[in-house]
Design a protein around this nucleic acid. Sequence first.
RNA 1: GCUCCCGUAGUCUAAUGGAUAGAAUACCUCCCUCCGAAGGAGGUGAUGCAGGUUCGAUUCCUGCCGGGAGCACCA
Length: 536
Amino acid sequence: MVRNDIEQAIQGALKAMGAGEVAFVVERPTDMAHGDYATNAALAAAKILKKNPRDVAAELQEAVGNIQGVEKVEVAGAGFINFYLSADALTEVVQEANKEGWGTNDLYIGKKVLVEYTSPNLFKPLHIGNLIGNILGESIARLFETSGADVKRLNYPSDIGLTIAKGVWGLQKLGLNPEILSELATAYVAGNEAYESGVGKEAIEEINRALYADTNAEWSSLRAQGIATSLKHLHELLVRLGTKGFDGEFFESQSGPIGQKLVKENVGGVFAESEGAIVYHGEHTRVFLNSQGLPTYEAKEVGLFELKSGAYPTFDISITVTGKEQTDFFRIVFDAIRKLFPGKTNGKDLIHIPTSFLKLTTGKMSSRLGNVITGESLLADLTDAARGREDVAVGALKFTVLKSGSGKDILFDPEKSLSLEGDSGPYVQYALVRARALLRKATEAEVVQKETEPSELERLLVHFPDVVVRAARDLEPHHVVTYVTELAAAFNSWYAQERLIVDGKVSAHALALVTAVEHTLHKGLTVLGIPAPEEM
RNA sequence: GCUCCCGUAGUCUAAUGGAUAGAAUACCUCCCUCCGAAGGAGGUGAUGCAGGUUCGAUUCCUGCCGGGAGCACCA
């Protein structure tokens, strides 16, 4: 790539000038008028060399000499050096963009990465928060894959505990069918109300204990049937969202006992007893086993790590995607896990990626089911808005979730928040569909060689691989969203001004260009997990 | 109270310490006899406040104001 050549030329020139240690970047300028690449090397070196930045820039400009693929080097502004690619180099980029490996990189080559996401409670209806985690996690997994990693997708559903007991209570009390999802939801709501109001509290706690101990065949059976129904539904919904299947599923009913045992064995070491509970004294104290000796969420994470590292002992990076309110929790729990498993965690990254809250605009919610919007109903409403196209609806939802940095709150107005116009999934999908329609038409046209001026499109395409690398490095899919939106806008603008097919003839270069745009939009959407429709 | 996160056009949002803070939406003009108008061209409009570091600050530091989250037996 030309960028690497530029970097090396600058590095060499700096060295010759006695400023070899200076840190500099070669990046895309904010404005295309400033060229295809720009560097701050002169600005950075000026201080060390005790010279005027513009003079240093002029010297550097001289020293870098000719670089293959660079047509023009200019000094601008306070001391920036701008590089303009030659028409040949841009043509080469278009050729590159049409190859299979376009947009892939080797940032995580040879790394094994575990991405845990979605992780719902199996007796509660899947809500928007679960969807957000799934959407972000899937995109993170794809970013790793496109950067060379061996990715394992993991799901960690909650299949035991008070919530499950509430559902089982409701199923039994109301005589509902655990094989029907809506009845499962009704059972949970009823159980939750009974628990909150106090009338069913004792009965539900009894069920909870019996489920843990597996001492009541009827209750255990209701639980098992409910879990099976819920899991089946989950997997079906995730297919509709475009999530690749999970490589592994670990359940809380497994992690609990394992974590309990591990914590118990390390009292006096990593853990300590305090007020009858077993705690970890980290940045602040957290309870791992409650005073009845039962594992808390913390201990279950310990058990989960044992399960994960047992199934994938050679992992390099372990990602957990959950709500951002758990950020502090994971800081301490990961700390405890490192102390408990020094050998298994040495040299490995344990990373928590926080998902944003979806803030619901008030007032509109009372007419809906309870006070949550289910993933199901959201998708249905969006599909209606998208004229019956679920792939467009999924695109709109995913785009909205992924377009801003992770952890930032999303304001969600069910009536209008998920726009299908402007900065949106459908906008990008539409540009792609247009490009594809054009390419279909062009198959009937005669291809001719014709001189064409390089357009803004080529100059945008250049940066796609760098954008993917940055997104993968920062674990921030929104960089890709921003880029893909920009490319779609540039293509729509091009489309309004230019004609690809004139009198049954197409220029070979223009055809390659449109193909490259199509390919790049497709790759970009794919890495985000957004559907790329043929027509709409 | 302690800790962490966040304040950018009316709204939503981008900017890896860099050039004239970039989009979208809403609002106001235009553009479908022409490869798909879920589109295109143009216009109005923004860094909470006060200091500091730097050649250069939306970005880093300090204080204040405003919002959110977490802080012992829930997950």
